[in-house]
Simulated scan of single mutants.
Amino acid sequence: MAALKIEGVTHWSIPVNDLNEAEEFYGELLGLTPKGRLGNSVMSCFNVGDHNILLCERSSPVDGLLAENGGAHHSFTVSPDTFNEACRVFRQRAIKIDNLTYRAQGFFTGRELYFYDPSGNRLELRDPTWTQGMPEPSFEELATS
């Protein structure tokens, strides 16, 4: 059998505990463009670039961080200035940080900041402009600069 020919991505879905809280986090903090709630009001659509993301409210909230999901996460590309600003804002708002990585080799190189949304989903901000040999300040250094 020949492989199917997928023509594009309609959307990715992220499960959340509280839709209102998630809309504020993804819209007001991360700056994704709100497109509106779907008819049943337990899902809210956001857009970034040419991608749609559905926030889907869980029927039963999950407690804790979801780091045990085998490294699963959602990654957003940002500019160097936005990356630095995110470090400052995340520190001010006490956003839970997983780690800051400087990746010199591999498929997705650059500096990567892993953090958690209010529902415990692991997210990443990636600045692809960072290359090996550039400075590697810590999260605290970036957050206080």
Score class of each variant (00 low, 15 high):
residue 67 A to F: 14
residue 71 G to Y: 02
residue 78 V to E: 06
residue 56 C to F: 06
residue 113 L to D: 11
residue 136 E to M: 11
residue 136 E to A: 03
residue 7 E to K: 12
residue 85 E to G: 03
residue 41 S to W: 11
residue 30 L to A: 04
residue 7 E to F: 09
residue 71 G to P: 01
residue 145 S to Y: 12
residue 89 V to W: 04
residue 106 G to I: 03
residue 138 S to M: 06
residue 104 A to P: 02
residue 80 P to L: 00
residue 144 T to K: 07
residue 61 P to N: 00
residue 89 V to D: 13
residue 95 I to L: 06
residue 125 L to F: 10
residue 142 L to N: 06
residue 93 R to I: 00
residue 19 L to R: 01
residue 120 G to T: 02
residue 143 A to K: 02
residue 13 S to L: 10
residue 107 F to N: 14
residue 104 A to T: 06
residue 107 F to K: 13
residue 59 S to C: 00
residue 98 D to A: 07
residue 56 C to L: 12
residue 48 V to P: 02
residue 138 S to P: 02
residue 42 V to H: 14
residue 100 L to Q: 08
residue 109 T to D: 08
residue 99 N to K: 13
residue 88 R to M: 13
residue 31 G to M: 08
residue 17 N to M: 09
residue 37 R to A: 11
residue 95 I to H: 05
residue 3 A to D: 14
residue 130 W to F: 07
residue 28 E to V: 03
residue 64 G to N: 11
residue 119 S to L: 08
residue 11 H to Y: 14
residue 70 G to W: 06
residue 141 E to G: 02
residue 34 P to A: 03
residue 73 H to E: 09
residue 44 S to Q: 09
residue 40 N to E: 15
residue 66 L to F: 02
residue 41 S to K: 14
residue 28 E to L: 13
residue 43 M to W: 00
residue 108 F to G: 01
residue 74 H to E: 14
residue 56 C to S: 14
residue 61 P to S: 00
residue 2 A to Q: 11
residue 105 Q to H: 10
residue 139 F to Q: 09
residue 68 E to K: 10
residue 118 P to I: 08
residue 143 A to R: 00
residue 140 E to G: 10
residue 47 N to I: 00
residue 25 F to L: 04
residue 139 F to Y: 15
residue 39 G to T: 05
residue 100 L to P: 00
residue 29 L to H: 03
residue 110 G to F: 01
residue 77 T to Q: 14
residue 98 D to N: 12
residue 12 W to F: 15
residue 139 F to M: 05
residue 2 A to K: 08
residue 134 M to L: 14
residue 12 W to E: 13
residue 81 D to M: 12
residue 86 A to G: 07
residue 22 A to E: 08
residue 126 R to I: 11
residue 60 S to W: 01
residue 98 D to C: 05
residue 142 L to T: 08
residue 125 L to C: 05
residue 58 R to I: 00
residue 106 G to E: 03
residue 54 L to A: 07
residue 123 L to G: 05
residue 34 P to E: 13
residue 57 E to D: 02
residue 123 L to D: 05
residue 33 T to F: 12
residue 67 A to C: 09
residue 20 N to D: 15
residue 35 K to P: 12
residue 88 R to S: 12
residue 55 L to Q: 01
residue 116 Y to I: 00
residue 54 L to R: 04
residue 23 E to M: 09
residue 22 A to H: 06
residue 91 R to E: 15
residue 53 I to G: 00
residue 121 N to R: 02
residue 2 A to I: 10
residue 85 E to D: 14
residue 23 E to I: 11
residue 113 L to S: 08
residue 83 F to A: 04
residue 85 E to S: 10
residue 125 L to G: 09
residue 82 T to F: 04
residue 85 E to P: 01
residue 126 R to D: 10
residue 109 T to A: 09
residue 89 V to A: 11
residue 123 L to H: 05
residue 49 G to M: 08
residue 1 M to Q: 06
residue 30 L to K: 08
residue 68 E to V: 00
residue 51 H to R: 10
residue 50 D to R: 06
residue 41 S to F: 15
residue 42 V to Q: 14
residue 82 T to D: 14
residue 121 N to I: 08
residue 118 P to M: 04
residue 143 A to H: 02
residue 94 A to T: 12
residue 33 T to G: 07
residue 64 G to H: 12
residue 75 S to D: 06
residue 143 A to S: 10
residue 91 R to M: 12
residue 14 I to R: 05
residue 141 E to Y: 01
residue 8 G to S: 08
residue 22 A to D: 06
residue 7 E to M: 09
residue 82 T to Y: 10
residue 8 G to N: 10
residue 135 P to I: 03
residue 2 A to F: 06
residue 65 L to K: 15
